[in-house]
Design a protein around this nucleic acid. Structure first.
Lengths: 134, 134
DNA sequence: TGAACATATGAACAATAATTCATATGTTTT
DNA sequence: AAAACATATGAATTATTGTTCATATGTTCA
């Protein structure tokens, strides 16, 4: 999926943007690529699941092995309740799965997909320009 | 980065979790893998940048070519102001870059990195189990 | 120069979300 | 059965965030 034909505008005479004469083609192309509302909402939600420091740390703790709620709370230094709430978010969006053994519930990453996504994000952060303010 | 030695607990005699006799090793391993607070915050922020339907749609519109603010607003059906605000978020976190030509500002994806991350997310969403509620 | 245009931004408001506290559910031990 | 334990959940509170509205900045055109 490495499309090397990214389009930049040619040095162009000054036209009003409003006219849509200048950008008509680009707009149509963009309309075609635009993901639909439902997909956008789901995709955003998937990223949202990773958009919190606590949840990101939970994922990192689970990179190499499963852990129970109690231990996750201990590792992260969070309350049991907060941990459980956050785990529910991760589970609801399919990032982790659970396995129950007696009264203990073990959490694990759902699949390598997640690890992959996590690593990509980490790469991005590490290659990053000095942090700017949002 | 495909670590195939993911650790699951052995079927184990019933011990109190609190004891840390059972999970001691796991906890130490997790402590070691745990990303630090600053990294967690930055990583979460990076995902946060993609955690909104409008922003995800902006990215999708920019997959194949650059576009100006006016056109992005038109393509997404958002107000100029809202579009600009969201673009600022994407720019602040290094997902898009800008190029100014006269009074027109063109936005483009910053690099293939972003496309990659976007696609991974999309894959995840598409492979997804029937949607559950958070 | 003044009017039209493209974009950016600050303040206000509405909507979401994360944590805490108290308590509920279900399991194991005594 | 009662007590201890592991986890889950609802309500309340505080914090963040997205959008709108009005307006500011900077560029081009007449």
């Amino acid at each position: 999926m490495n499309n090397n034909s990214y389009v930049f505008k040619k040095e162009s005479p000054n036209l009003r943007c409003e006219d849509n004469r200048l950008h008509e083609d680009a707009i149509q192309q963009a309309q075609a690529d635009l993901i639909d509302g439902l997909t956008a909402t789901r995709l955003a939600a998937a990223f949202q699941a990773l958009a919190d420091p606590s949840r990101v740390r939970l994922i990192s703790a689970l990179l190499k092995q499963e852990l129970c709620v109690h231990d996750l709370a201990a590792v992260l230094g969070m309350s049991q309740s907060a941990t459980s709430h956050q785990l529910r978010v991760l589970r609801a969006w399919g990032l982790v799965r659970t396995r129950k053994e007696g009264r203990i519930v073990y959490y694990a990453l759902d699949d390598d997909h997640i690890r992959e996504l996590f690593q990509r994000g980490l790469e991005h952060v590490r290659h990053q320009h000095p942090v700017q303010h949002p």
